[in-house]
């Protein structure tokens, strides 16, 4: 049976950096459980801003205001404590950012260490192996777990960051252009990985790359100048977009 409440729902979500201008304007959309939803749009359209609203990253910057509602399993996260929300909503950034002073092993477990959660040695080993296996990194790094994470290649570092986010067993994984700093082969690995991971976690991914959205996502959002122009099945959007602006973007006339 399908769940009635969507795992994540935007209701008239607005984000503004200054009083005069809104970076995200009245976005409403329901994200389905265990899907990959791509957020597309030209630079500056507010897609990263919308994504960062979901794990309350904007709370770090006092001048940014977030309005409307964002429901996680039916509860509005805007009224929750950031540290509670962020344990349930993981995030992977554009540039791979493994913690430079920690080993690969400790990077995977950093979520626990940072939250003061103690694990036994066996639990630690099991978590590290499971998470690194689920990002297909285990075979490559199992003999160098005590090396620093920064020794890995860019693609491996990004997979390590995904493993680090997965270790906390989040409901939703936010990805902010996770492959834009990677070469095509590393990108392909990550994309294959995401298709696997959607069984475990709901993924919301911001991408500049239309091909990537088409390859991996089942639903797509198209944003333009802060508005959500179109939201629907990726298949439909790419073949038969309803809005003229979406068509112009997808055919390369605007971008």
């Amino acid at each position: 049976m399908e769940s009635v409440t969507p795992i994540l729902e935007f209701k008239n979500t607005c984000v503004s950096y200054t009083k005069q201008t809104m970076a995200v304007k009245y976005v409403s959309a329901a994200i389905e459980r265990n899907t990959i939803t791509a957020i597309m749009g030209p630079s500056g359209c507010g897609k990263s801003t919308l994504l960062r609203a979901v794990n309350l990253m904007h709370n770090l910057y006092p001048n940014i205001r977030v309005g409307g509602e964002i429901l996680l399993n039916g509860a509005d996260i805007l009224s929750m404590e950031p540290i509670d929300v962020r344990r349930r909503v993981g995030m992977v950034f554009q540039r791979p950012a493994p913690f430079p002073t920690m080993s690969i092993y400790d990077n995977v477990l950093s979520g626990f260490a940072l939250n003061g959660i103690r694990l036994s040695k066996a639990e630690k080993d099991a978590t590290v192996e499971h998470c690194l296996r689920s990002v297909a990194l285990w075979d490559e790094v199992k003999d160098v777990l005590n090396k620093k994470g920064t020794f890995l290649s860019g693609g491996q570092q990004q997979r390590l960051c995904i493993a680090r986010a997965l270790a906390m067993k989040p409901d939703v994984l936010l990805m902010d252009e996770p492959t834009s700093a990677l070469d095509p082969i590393a990108t392909k690995h990550i994309e294959e990985l995401l298709l696997e991971l959607q069984k475990e976690v709901t993924i919301l991914i911001v991408t500049h790359n239309m091909g990537q959205a088409k390859r991996i996502s089942s639903k797509s959002m198209f944003m333009y100048l802060g508005e959500l122009v179109e939201y629907g099945d990726t298949e439909t959007m790419f073949t038969n977009p309803t809005d003229e602006r979406t068509r112009a973007y997808l055919t390369g006339k605007m971008g």
């Binding site: 939250n115 960051c161 906390m168």
Partner: peptide, 29 residues
Amino acid sequence: LPASLKEAGLALGANSARVMLKVQLPAAF
């Protein structure tokens, strides 16, 4: 230090004191 380092720590649900102690200060050592 890159801002992403601090944000990556906070994105895991840690409070800023712990991120400072376990991520930022070691990186700045």
